[in-house]
Write a protein that binds this DNA or RNA. Structure first.
Length: 909
RNA sequence: GGGCGAUUAGCUCAGUUGGUCAGAGCGCACGGUUCACAUCCGUGAGGUCACUGGUUCGAGCCCAGUAUCGCCCACCA
């Protein structure tokens, strides 16, 4: 037990506590301070590794909060709970950031060269790494830092090499020339997923291609002998190798098989028929550029067309053999349009709404182009991933994302994993002068060509690196030491929950599933919990360009990590975005403050007969009063409800349940009832001690339940409470509460008494009675509630400002001879609040106000009663509804009938 | 062009297998300063649960359609 400062100061509380957890070594399931039971199943969460590109944002804080909540819950239940933290090297994202920084220094990737560039990257990454780890600690992540992994560390590098070699040997990785999505700004291929379709207004140009005469060679002298094609990218005509029309298009039927001459390059290309063409679009004739358009590539392959490349890596025109070579693609476009106009071959140009693919990182317009690169054959992998979710071996939450999952995996394209970047895992493939490919996972590389045994000095390693998501895709098992047979892999894999944002379900979750199943033959996780995105108070997505990014540390400084976590978890429903603003944080901070003060009160209310350092005792049941039993029963109910919500992954519901229980029940009623009893000198000392021990017991329980949500403040407060000999030193490893059935059943009708107090308060307020004024109250309580009433009579007196409080046995005995009273009905109990005692006069309007209140209540009760009777009068309802429902309705009808009668009686109606 | 989500009190949102589910926080109104907390206490007002049909004894909750907003996927050059 320690003294608590009067004011709740989150910063003071939180700093010290994280250090204590670290010292106690309780984060690791096998740490020195672990209290885990080896007989229980393990619970593992692998953290989605944040990118080492900068600092964390609110989305990360939300992830961490949810993951940490699950881990702390599992840990308190005695499971070996592993929260394995990590960082992602984020190759392209990191390069974009570093390149920008270098640009400001007047340097560039090329000016430094590969070696110095990577050294710079290492410096940059080690700096941001510390920032990120510091942020996670501030949020309270109880991760096992001793197991911290990095997607660029040695272990990960080995996993990448072994994974690739295995995929290669299984013919699941192959190298081929194919059309890739190329970013001319980043100078690398990127994933289809990294292309952002952007609506833009462009121009649709119609260009006349002149027919070549049947003999071939000469252009048809008739200037009208043309076919007009429509395009938004006229510069690509330099790479055209055909014109396509729909096979059923009568307009062009007689032209199919003839040739046209492509301007500037003077190449004669065939007019082909292909059903891909949409007759209704443009002119119904399409130019085909197989090297620079995905559809055209497919068409080209179907018709055996050549595919000349006419765009260089930086999107300048190249190899066209025209004067346009060397020009930027857009300069070339302008020049070509001008030249076509001059030739009289530009038939039309009009404004056109279209969707342009832009690079997610640089914003450059993507240029598809042919490259020889490495691909992962995804079809067989996707099949296994689908089987895993269909069979329920892995469950996706919320379930609706399974549709998205199904759709993407059933339409998946092979995965291009080559990137022309420097920061990342180099592809372990070597090529010999004869074109043989050697793939090895050996860390020193091959010694000779696998095929022709040429020595290593004649081999050349692929200069490319892997897509950053390739190493991320191995994350759940590479972190455990795979491909080696480690103890961790045997113990903690497959993992329990993969928590991440729904925005990377394809990038990451699907890849982990595919690679995990293929390489480990097991699902990498049993549950996928998809979080929503955090938005600003206006519902805008937070982004650096909008300038509405919020630094979690700023919020933690202001309100505390506990408040931030509570706010984030409170609003979280799986898969749904949430807005976060100041009012929600305030709400959470007020709650932490409430908890703080409630604990301070309890500590200060210790009866003097209990020594300060006393060990915790269970009060003797016979010393408990009705309010204690009620409180214990409510607590047991809360435990049950929280357990259920936790099992449903309804974490927002958990916070709501605890907020209501702690504030609305424990503080508003539990403490107020206890105050009276603790001050009652007429009670035996054992009773007063039992009251206090009950307050401690219940508070202890709520602190445990709340700990996964608000770890710091609960740890601090719990440390100040008396404990049992069997309790550990720290709440983080204390046991999760178990609801007792005995407690659950012990409500004793206290709820009705509290309703009566509420009713009296309401009546007094409505009648504009001064709150502090004591008024005599006569109360009728049925025999069944008699003992309860007598047990908390002093509290009712004080809370209802009722004095003297006279109990009568029957309602009939409530004398209403004096019209100066307020009538209150609550369940089976009833009360009359009198104005005329001790020379106090009623205000003239009080009676009228009270009458108006009663009439309102009567009207409402009559309405409900009518509805209830209506329902019961329906034969089909009685016949078809479940018996319990009908029974319920009958009870309700009886209660309402009684209530209506009593209200009428009081109104004299 | 497909798919998904949202639409509940002035604002932000809960509402878990259809039967006291019409709720919370903030805001608002009225009233409260000794003894945990003004980061507080008490009381109250506010909603045809987007719209239209349907299923059912009974529908924010299930089905169909409509509207508005948002997201994802997609080869209309």
């Amino acid at each position: 037990m320690t003294d608590l400062p009067k004011a709740y100061a989150p910063r003071d509380v939180e700093g010290a506590i994280y250090e204590r957890w670290l010292e106690a070594d309780v984060f690791a399931p096998d740490g020195a301070g672990s209290t885990a039971d080896p007989a229980l199943p393990t619970f593992t969460i692998i953290q989605p590794p944040p990118n080492v590109t900068g600092s964390l944002h609110l989305g990360h804080a939300q992830r961490t909060a949810v993951e940490d909540l699950m881990i702390r819950h599992a840990r308190m239940r005695g499971q070996r709970a592993l929260f394995l933290p990590g960082l992602d090297h984020a190759s392209i994202a990191a390069q974009v950031v570093l390149d920008r920084m270098l640009g400001e220094e007047g340097e560039s990737r090329n000016s430094l060269g590969r070696e110095r560039y990577l050294a710079r990257m290492a410096d940059f990454v080690s700096a941001t790494r510390e920032v990120i780890l510091g942020q996670q600690r501030r949020v309270g992540a109880s991760a096992d830092w001793g197991r911290l992994r990095f997607t660029m560390d040695e272990r990960s590098a080995k996993a990448v090499r072994v994974a690739f070699e295995r995929l290669y040997r299984a013919d699941l990785a192959y190298r081929t020339e194919a059309l890739v999505t190329w970013c001319p700004g980043c100078l690398t291929s990127v994933s289809d997923l990294e292309v952002v379709p952007t609506p833009e207004t462009g121009t649709l140009w119609s260009i006349a291609y002149h027919l070549v005469d049947a003999a071939g060679g000469a252009v048809d002298p008739d200037p009208a002998a043309t076919i007009i094609v429509a395009t938004t990218r006229p510069e690509t005509l330099l790479g055209d190798t055909a014109v396509a029309v729909h096979p059923d298009d009568e307009r062009y039927a007689n032209l199919v098989g003839r040739f046209v001459r492509i301007p500037f390059v003077d190449r004669d290309v065939p007019i082909i028929a292909d059903p891909i063409v949409d007759r209704a679009f443009g002119t119904g004739a399409v130019k085909i550029t197989p090297a620079h358009d995905r559809d055209d590539r497919e068409t080209g392959l179907r018709h055996n067309l050549p595919a000349p490349t006419i765009l260089a890596d930086d999107a300048t025109i190249t190899q066209s053999g025209t004067a346009y070579d060397g020009l930027d693609r857009y300069a070339a476009r302008d020049a070509i349009v001008a030249a076509l106009t001059a030739r009289g071959d530009l038939a039309d140009s009009k404004s056109h709404e279209m969707v342009v693919g832009r690079c997610q990182r640089s914003g450059d317009v993507i240029e598809p182009r042919l490259k020889t690169q490495w691909f992962i054959r995804t079809a067989p992998l996707a099949e296994r991933a689908l089987a895993a979710t269909r069979s329920g071996r892995t469950r996706i939450l919320p379930e609706r994302f399974e549709k998205t999952w199904e759709h993407w995996l059933t339409n998946i394209r092979d995965w291009n994993v080559s990137r022309q970047l420097w920061w990342g895992h180099r592809i372990p493939a070597w090529y010999c002068p004869d074109g043989h490919v050697t793939v090895t996972s050996a860390d020193i590389g091959p010694t000779a060509c696998d095929t022709c045994s040429r020595p290593i000095k004649d081999l050349r390693q692929d200069p490319d690196i892997f897509d950053t998501w390739f190493s991320s895709g191995l994350w759940p098992f590479s972190t455990m030491g795979w491909p080696d047979d480690t103890a961790d892999l045997a113990t903690y894999y497959p993992t329990s929950v993969m928590e991440t944002g729904y925005d990377i379900i394809f990038f990451w979750v699907a890849r982990m599933m595919m690679l995990g199943l293929e390489l480990t033959d097991r699902v990498p996780f049993h549950t996928v919990y998809l979080s929503g995105l955090i938005r600003d108070p206006e519902g805008q997505k937070m982004s650096k360009t909008k300038g509405n990014v919020v630094d979690p540390l700023g919020l933690i400084d202001e309100s505390g990590a506990d408040a931030l976590r509570f706010a984030l978890i409170h609003g979280a429903t799986p898969g749904n975005d949430q807005r976060l603003g100041p009012t929600k944080l305030e709400h959470a901070r007020h709650f932490a403050n409430k908890l703080w003060n409630a604990t301070r009160y309890v500590l200060g209310a210790r009866p003097s007969t209990i020594p300060a350092g006393a060990e915790r005792r269970h009060p003797n049941p016979s010393d408990l009063g009705p309010s204690e039993r009620w409180l214990l029963s409510r607590t047991a109910a809360t435990i049950t409800a929280v357990d259920r919500a936790m099992a449903d992954h309804a974490f927002g519901e958990v916070t709501r349940l605890l907020y209501d229980a702690i504030w609305g029940e424990y503080c508003d009623w539990g403490l107020e009832l206890a105050k009276v009893r603790l001050a009652d000198e007429t009670l035996p000392v054992e009773s007063r001690e039992a009251t206090w021990w009950t307050l401690v017991e219940v508070l202890d329980t709520y602190l445990r339940l709340l700990h996964p949500v608000m770890p710091f403040v609960t740890e601090a407060l719990w440390g100040s409470l008396p404990h049992r000999a069997t309790d550990p030193d720290l709440l983080i490893v204390a046991r999760w509460p178990i609801a007792s059935e005995r407690d659950t059943a012990a409500e004793m009708g206290v709820g009705t008494m509290l309703d009566l107090v509420r009713g009296i308060r309401n009546a007094r307020a409505e009648a504009r009675v001064e709150p502090a004024r004591w008024l005599p109250v006569d109360i009728a309580v049925p025999e069944t509630l008699g003992a309860t009433f007598e047990g908390i009579r002093p509290a009712i007196e004080r809370l209802a400002r009722a004095r003297p409080l006279v109990r009568v046995l029957t309602r009939e005995a409530l004398s209403d001879a004096d019209p100066n009273h307020l009538a209150v009905i609550a369940g089976e109990a009833e009360a009359l609040v009198r104005f005329t005692a001790a020379g106090q006069a009623a205000s003239p309007e009080s009676g009228a106000l009270d009458r108006a209140r009663l009439e309102r209540e009567l009207a409402q009760a009559e309405g409900w009663l009518a509805a209830a009777q209506d329902r019961l009068s329906s034969e089909t309802f009685v016949a078809r509804a479940p018996a319990a429902v009908v029974e319920n309705a009958r009870t309700r009808e009886a209660d309402l009938t009684d209530q209506v009668a009593r209200l009428r009686e009081r109104l004299g109606a």
